[in-house]
Amino acid sequence: MQCLTGPQPPRPAIPRKEPPMESPILPKPLRQGLSKAQLTKETLLKNAKKEFLSHGFQGASLRRICASAGVTTGAVYFFFQNKEDLFSQIVAPTASGLAALGRELTETEYASPDLGPACDLRLMEFLYCHREEALLLLEHSAHTRYETFPGELYAQMRQTFLLFFKRYGREDADPELIRILVEMRMKGFLEILKGDYTMEQALTLTRQTGIYADGGFRQLAATMKTEQPMDKN
């Protein structure tokens, strides 16, 4: 991780390993030429995403989804097994892409700490491009097959923080401290993601909060070298 000040040079390029993702909801130009059945499924996915974002998985109503889509409830079961299958088809590509990207960025940043800012920006680019699906996964996936996804992502970040503390000579870093730091970092990403920002604004805020976080981490690591481990009793 690297603190940046003043005018910024182009950020370092990181090789992109993740395969291209195909969103289940197609852009308008690509919907031309679809069959009536394909258009119906597309409309259901679009309206279901809005419903899940507004009411969460449990509170979402198939009746409302179908009413918004202008179809009968029977149409849902023609394309999807149930409400959870509908939710899963919306978020599955984003879930697999985000998990793969998280692993890649962890490896990249640990091997080359100076690429930390670029890794943060890569992550925000991905989240921004899949904003609604990411919010469904991180805040509205309870009682679905993806309900453990946020915890798994946070665990991956905690492991990354632990590796960096070890690199700076504190293998005994308090797990509770790491948990709090990860919660703070993810809350920052979510606040940016939920804000009414352009991509450029979101990336600027990510860079600025990253500078703050990086400086704080380095100062904390330096301070901890002279401190005794916290008594956990």
Rank of each mutant, 00 (worst) to 15 (best):
Q8M: 13
Q8C: 12
P9N: 08
R11S: 09
R11Q: 13
P12N: 09
P12H: 09
I14P: 06
I14G: 06
P15T: 06
P15Y: 07
P15K: 07
P15M: 08
R16D: 12
R16W: 10
K17T: 13
E18Q: 14
P19C: 05
P19E: 04
P20E: 04
M21I: 10
E22A: 11
S23R: 08
S23I: 04
S23E: 06
S23G: 04
I25Q: 08
I25E: 07
I25T: 06
L26F: 14
L26P: 13
P27I: 02
K28P: 15
K28A: 13
P29K: 03
P29N: 06
L30R: 07
L30F: 05
R31S: 12
Q32M: 11
Q32P: 09
G33A: 08
G33D: 08
L34F: 11
L34S: 13
K36T: 15
K36A: 12
K36I: 13
A37N: 08
A37E: 09
A37K: 09
A37W: 05
Q38S: 13
L39Y: 12
T40E: 11
T40P: 06
T40Y: 05
K41F: 01
K41N: 02
T43C: 07
L44S: 00
L45S: 03
K46W: 11
K46S: 11
N47A: 06
N47I: 03
N47S: 10
A48F: 00
A48C: 01
K50F: 03
E51Q: 05
E51M: 04
E51Y: 00
E51L: 02
E51W: 00
F52R: 04
L53I: 03
L53K: 04
L53D: 04
S54W: 14
S54R: 15
S54L: 14
H55T: 10
G56Y: 01
Q58N: 06
Q58M: 06
A60F: 02
S61F: 00
S61V: 00
L62M: 08
R63L: 04
R63D: 00
R64I: 00
I65K: 00
I65L: 02
C66G: 01
S68G: 03
